[in-house]
Write a protein that binds this DNA or RNA. Structure first.
Lengths: 198, 198
DNA sequence: CGGGACATGTAAACGGTTACATGATTAA
DNA sequence: TTAATCATGTAACCGTTTACATGTCCCG
């Protein structure tokens, strides 16, 4: 899965060099899907060529020599076979979420508010981008791609709504009730304090 | 970052063995944050012990011998220092999204609808779980943890809403307009068809 | 004529998973 | 008595990133 197929996907839009593919992955919207560095792109291209999914056309692009890659028949079929497979469930690594999961009573909530404000800034930026992008009149975005962009927008809007609500709740002290039938919170902070005063 | 800190976070709730930590990561809600296998947990525990973040207390737990680990003072401080650092922006790897980005006109939209229905099923399942979890009367979930759960719920609800809308749009043929000022979609399918008939 | 973008590539390091090895205890 | 679960660990492998090496072309 993955890097190989992302490369095939990029090539489906038109012949590209390793450098082009890297630029595509550095695109602002990449935060919404994937990424790869030169260290994996070039070896992967070589491998895909050996397998017969792509072939190189040494081309003179505006005076500069570039090694452009294009999909073979086998490559198109592989891409389409992959598109047809049920996508695996998304893998999300969200440190903010993890940190909230292990937050404890002796941690100042003001720090958490700062984290939330920082996240808000970043998500607002991304939201602005995904809103403007399909209107720039330049990039090619397919109808189905537009559906995906609508999803990204909704997701970000929901996140921003949650952030605002959450900050309000924290600042008003109106937090939801904990589930703690065995006094775990209490046990935890006594354990912590005992260890810290040593 | 990450596995080391996730382990410290788990230990902050109480002394645990490598096996316990693994079970914690296998928890259904792990899809919402992190994961790790034995192959990384045990070596990590050893390393954390050497660094002085944790120490082992060989304990007899209901007849069974377990190597329980507990946070040291240094470990608590490290955990809290990490909690205080601005969390990095989430990394999301969503194959569905990627596939939609490279979907093309010659791909049957019925397949995409199947992908969406499959995703719907999985997200509904997760939503059910995160809704029931904080009500099971057993697990310990802190107030801040509850805020995180609220976020997960909102995110999943938004996703489900988007899925329903999207399926409707596809089935009614009422798709959003593409951005394609240079006839890229056309070029792409002629390139593809030419390659395929060879 | 120097700095920056364009362009291709590789070697070492890293972080993690998979698969395996081993054994104790418990419930059917 | 045997399958499942509890429990700890390692070695081989895999994919990816980081850092480096090298060179070109173009603009100011």
């Amino acid at each position: 899965m993955s890097i190989e197929h992302s490369i095939l996907a990029v090539l489906s839009f038109g012949p590209s060099s390793g450098y082009d593919i890297k630029s595509e992955f550095e695109h602002e919207a990449s935060g919404l899907f994937w990424g790869a560095s030169y260290g994996s792109i070039y070896p992967k291209l070589k491998k895909l060529e050996e397998t017969g999914y792509i072939f190189a056309l040494e081309e003179e692009d505006e005076g500069r020599k570039k090694k452009l890659y294009e999909l073979t028949k086998k490559g198109w079929l592989e891409l389409e076979q992959w598109l047809g497979e049920t996508p695996s469930y998304p893998i999300i690594k969200d440190e903010l979420f993890m940190k909230m999961g292990s937050w404890h009573r002796d941690m100042d909530l003001k720090i958490l508010v700062n984290h939330l404000l920082e996240r808000k800034k970043q998500s607002e930026h991304l939201l602005r981008f995904v809103t403007e992008w399909p209107k720039n009149g330049v990039s090619y975005i397919d109808q189905v791609g537009m559906l995906a962009i609508q999803y990204a927008k909704m997701r970000l809007e929901t996140e921003l709504l949650w952030i605002d609500r959450t900050i309000e709740m924290i600042q008003s002290g109106d937090l939801p009730k904990a589930q703690d039938t065995r006094g775990n919170a209490e046990k935890m902070i006594t354990r912590r304090r005992k260890t810290l005063q040593e």
